[in-house]
Design a protein around this nucleic acid. Structure first.
Lengths: 193, 193
DNA sequence: GGGCCCATGTAATTAGTTACATGATTAT
DNA sequence: ATAATCATGTAACTAATTACATGGGCCC
């Protein structure tokens, strides 16, 4: 699935500008789909070329003009077709877990710093992204509630695991460091970058 | 982080061929990092060019030759440098959750099929990938145990959530379908692809 | 005066997948 | 016989990120 389809999906929920779509990605899709301006704006242009969305330039007082996109009937059908044909993959790419996996090759304080930063980040996400509609979720579609609840369940479990394991894990890594060929190892070649 | 670094990481755990590295990716990294032959073999060639690994061609009886890669001292330093400089990102791209999010736009039986397939897939992963070293994890580094435990925690939580929500979610989606503009909508334009 | 929010876009680069190409052996 | 496993690699393509480019308004 590409960003084009996702943008069309956002537009299925209501008209929006490129900038606002990016906000939606950050607020609602963050835990399962990411996209930058560099992919959103070209995607929107292509959707227009295909006739799946229409644009209206909205002048704003003391703001740059806004281009508000609205899905067409053809766009709706195209979206349904795309979704129906979509293979439901589920990929994670986590440099965080790679770093934990190779924790014994990191400089002494890095594993703790990386782990704590992730704990903080996920705690924040849990508070901000997943609590917004905690009880009053009447406005959401079943799918939105499901995806949100999934994220909440997973983040909660991840945080619980990280809290539980943190101290033991860090101690064991330190012990492994001491046993193996430690970090300041040749010493010099590491400074730059 | 690119596949090059990960291959070097695998080689830090012991010598290996491209084919075996792929197996390692599938067995150990599957839940947080994926890579295909199309990226592994070129990566290995680059690592060799850089002097970070050495190759030995191993003849085999009744098998194609195997190229066994071994990390060099320079490779070890390069790996540590890379890992030290690495920003610990954590990205998920899930067409599965996109499909659930837009479940009301799917043909009637698709949400259930997709959800059940994911439940089955994750159940299988939990049994195969995460149980192998359930108690006897003496051989593993702390990092390996941490990453494995993380995956197990997350998959377990995801499965619990999906089991808990399944029936209600599916019923609500069906109800939304009935209310809104349903799937066999124009009817025709959907057959192909 | 510095930094963030609004707002849109392009170009260069990076990084990866999929399909192709080959071919013997082993298990069902 | 048919599929899976072992084994390596390339070429075409897809898709996205990052950095660049621009500029006013608002808040501290």
């Amino acid at each position: 699935m590409d960003v084009r389809t996702l943008c069309l999906g956002v537009l299925a929920l209501g008209e929006s500008s490129g900038y606002e779509i990016k906000k939606t990605f950050e607020q609602s899709f963050h835990h399962f789909f990411g996209a930058s301006y560099g992919s959103i704006y070209p995607a929107l242009a292509e959707l227009e070329r295909a006739g799946w969305v229409e644009v209206e330039a909205v002048e704003q007082s003391k703001r740059p003009d806004k281009k508000v996109y609205r899905m067409t009937r053809a766009g709706r059908l195209a979206l349904e077709e795309r979704l129906a044909a979509e293979a439901p993959r589920h990929r994670v790419r986590s440099e965080f877990l790679v770093l934990m996996y190779f924790a014994h090759l990191l400089p002494p304080n890095r594993p703790a710093a990386v782990l704590d930063a992730m704990i903080e980040r996920m705690t924040h996400t849990l508070e901000v992204e997943f609590s917004t509609c905690d009880a009053g979720d009447a406005e959401l579609t079943p799918g939105q509630r499901f995806a949100l609840g999934y994220g909440r369940a997973v983040y909660t479990a991840a945080l619980r695991y990280m809290h539980e394991q943190r101290d033991d894990f860090l101690a064991e890594v330190a012990a492994t460091d001491a046993a193996g060929p430690g970090w300041p190892d040749g010493g010099l070649a590491v400074a730059g970058e």
